[in-house]
């Protein structure tokens, strides 16, 4: 595959779209949530404000949320692929996006506390590459993952004595819903819950986070996980936490679960909490042309 001179411009547009335009499925789900809440309740008012903000951000081309988060790029690419060029283009695009206020300067040196000012730094932005079998097609999924929601993510090791959660699906249910109760309004719900059952400490979180890329309305091909997803969403919405923790029925917009083999000694359940401002955008490069999904 040849290098692409326009790549950083294309990536800049990817960032702009991700920061300022919420995916249609999330917006629809929020609107549905508002319709289900009691008229004039704090939950309905909060969802109304959220929907108004989404429309305004798209119109003004300004960030939906001021916490534009960690930019996370997931790249799927053919076998012959200029990975270094893509990484450099993302870094450049992130810098330009920061000057254009699509992104807030968010990269802080963890040792000195200094903000780099341009959203670049060690492992920042985050870029993950995965080879696929398509010949002349690259897909880049960008996720902007805000800090407030990231802080409410949790990883449990089963068994969990405090919750009476054993090494089975019932234990999995208990810890996922415990994470939702602990999050309250701190993670800016209604949330998308992304979960990995199994794996190790790092693969668990990584696989869970990727689940956020799934469309809300898709169906898990594994019937056991598909049923678990629906059940978790339904039970979470019976907790009464509501949008922003104000009370109400719309606590979770959807649940996405995957699993990974684990060693006999470990049984992790890794939960990523995605805020209602679930900013994600795909860019597809095919035959030298770019399109945004």
């Amino acid at each position: 595959m040849k290098t692409i001179p326009e790549l950083s411009d294309w990536a800049l547009e990817l960032i702009r779209l991700a920061s300022t335009r919420l995916p249609a499925d999330i917006r629809e789900s929020l609107a549905k949530g508002r319709a289900s809440e009691v008229e004039n309740s704090p939950a309905a008012a909060t969802l109304g404000t959220i929907l108004e903000n989404i429309d305004l951000a798209e119109k003004l081309s300004t960030p939906i949320c001021q916490d534009t988060g960690t930019p996370v790029f997931y790249v799927q690419h053919p076998w012959d692929f200029p990975a270094a060029q893509f990484k450099a283009a993302f870094t450049e695009a992130v810098k330009v996006a920061t000057t254009k206020n699509y992104l807030r300067p968010n990269a802080v040196d963890s040792i000195t506390g200094k903000n780099s000012g341009d959203n670049t730094g060690d492992h920042f932005p985050a870029v993950y590459f995965e080879q696929w079998d398509r010949e002349d097609e690259v897909r880049v999924d960008l996720m902007l993952k805000g800090g407030g929601s990231e802080n409410t993510g949790a990883q449990y090791a089963l068994p969990h004595a405090g919750l009476g959660a054993g090494r089975d699906l019932d234990g999995v249910r208990k810890v996922i819903l415990d994470a939702v109760v602990n999050a309250q309004g701190k993670g800016c719900g209604p949330a998308v819950l992304a979960v990995c059952i199994g794996g190790d400490r790092s693969s668990g979180y990584a696989l869970a986070k990727k689940q956020i890329l799934r469309p809300l309305g898709d169906k898990n091909p594994d019937p056991v996980l598909a049923a678990l997803e629906d059940e978790i969403t339904e039970k979470a919405n019976s907790l009464g936490i509501g949008p922003m923790g104000f009370g109400g029925m719309t606590t979770v917009l959807g649940t996405k679960i995957t699993s990974a083999h684990r060693v006999p000694a470990s049984f992790f359940v890794s939960i990523i909490y995605m805020c209602w401002a679930a900013r994600k955008q795909a860019m597809i490069i095919r035959g030298g042309e770019v399109s945004y999904d």
């Binding site: 108004e52 300004t62 939906i64 949320c65 802080v108 903000n115």
Partner: peptide, 29 residues
């Protein structure tokens, strides 16, 4: 309580930035 994430909307209520202090903390801080 303000609505978390409603950032573009809330910014409309800020009519003037009068000053800023301690920018060495980084602009968000």
């Amino acid at each position: 309580h303000a609505v978390g994430g409603a950032a573009s909307l809330i910014a409309q209520q800020v009519v003037e930035v009068e000053d800023v202090y301690k920018t060495e903390f980084g602009l968000p801080e």
